[in-house]
């Protein structure tokens, strides 16, 4: 059982078959503040970038830290979307500074750290905020799966290009959308999983529902092992050769 106050969580990242010789360049982070606020995020480091995985790492750490710092230890009385968005912006700016410094040591520019960002910050029963640069998706589902909200992938014209936090115009591609109260389950995923779980521009519930049900009834360790096996299974590999990350959280 997860010990996080207010939320049960699970998540995993698996390397895609076409990256089998490399490390997986997806990263994810899920944490709950002492005041019970969920921070869940996924970053997909570009396979074409030399330090894509490191970029994804830096982005996860800095955005999660900036949000945690802003949220502090208390229990929020309401969702201040503007302040949360500012914290995300600060976190990305900090990750860029850190990537620049690391790049200077390695003799490479920011583009060597290309990574996408998708995440959610949610206050139990009060709603929250999706934040997003590029592809991947974040999904909030109401109890009994009767309603959902999604922050959908955005790529530009081509499916093999997307937007990264390392580009000069990153703020033009940073998107926020509100999560209203009443959604108790959150999924955050990289593009390897949107290929399996989105039907066109909508979530395919026969994909997400069984996963949510299983994770809710399993220990975190057992759940993550089975999630890993599922995302790395023959059916999933035949459909997408990309790295795959899925994070799940459910308010208790």
């Amino acid at each position: 059982m997860s010990s996080a106050p207010g939320w049960r969580v699970a998540g995993t990242s698996v390397a895609g078959p076409c990256h089998a010789n490399d490390d997986c360049q997806d990263r994810h982070r899920v944490q709950v503040t002492p005041g019970g606020v969920l921070i869940a995020l996924v970053s997909d480091g570009a396979g074409s970038a030399k330090f894509g995985g490191e970029g994804a790492d830096l982005l996860c750490v800095h955005v999660a830290n900036a949000l945690a710092l802003h949220l502090g230890k208390g229990k929020p009385k309401a969702v201040d979307a503007q302040a949360l968005a500012r914290a995300v912006d600060d976190g990305i700016a900090a990750a860029r500074t850190a990537a620049e410094a690391l790049g200077a040591e390695q003799g490479v520019g920011l583009a060597a750290f290309h990574a996408t960002l998708v995440g959610a910050v949610v206050v139990p029963k009060k709603g929250g905020l999706f934040f997003h640069i590029g592809d991947g998706a974040a999904l909030a589902v109401a109890p009994e799966s009767e309603r959902w909200l999604m922050s959908a992938p955005r790529n530009g014209e081509y499916a093999d290009t997307t937007y990264f936090f390392t580009e000069p115009d990153w703020r033009d591609h940073l998107r926020f959308s509100a999560i209203e109260p009443g959604y108790d389950t959150v999924f955050v995923m990289s593009d390897g999983v949107t290929e399996l779980g989105l039907q066109g521009a909508e979530p395919h519930m026969p994909f997400f529902e069984p996963i949510g049900r299983f994770l809710a009834g399993a220990s975190r360790e057992e759940g993550e092992l089975a999630l890993r096996a599922t995302l790395d299974g023959e059916a999933a590999r035949g459909r997408s050769n990309d790295d795959k990350t899925l994070v799940w959280a459910q308010a208790r």
């Binding site: 499916a159 093999d160 290929e195 399996l196 779980g197 989105l198 039907q199 066109g200 395919h204 026969p206 994909f207 069984p210 996963i211 299983f214 092992l225 089975a226 999630l227 890993r228 096996a229 599922t230 299974g233 059916a235 999933a236 459909r239």
Partner: peptide, 16 residues
């Protein structure tokens, strides 16, 4: 290894 049961993958037109 145990897979999560009943997970149905979306049937999408593959990117070209």
């Amino acid at each position: 290894m145990t897979l999560i049961p009943d997970v149905a993958l979306a049937e999408n037109t593959s990117q070209r």
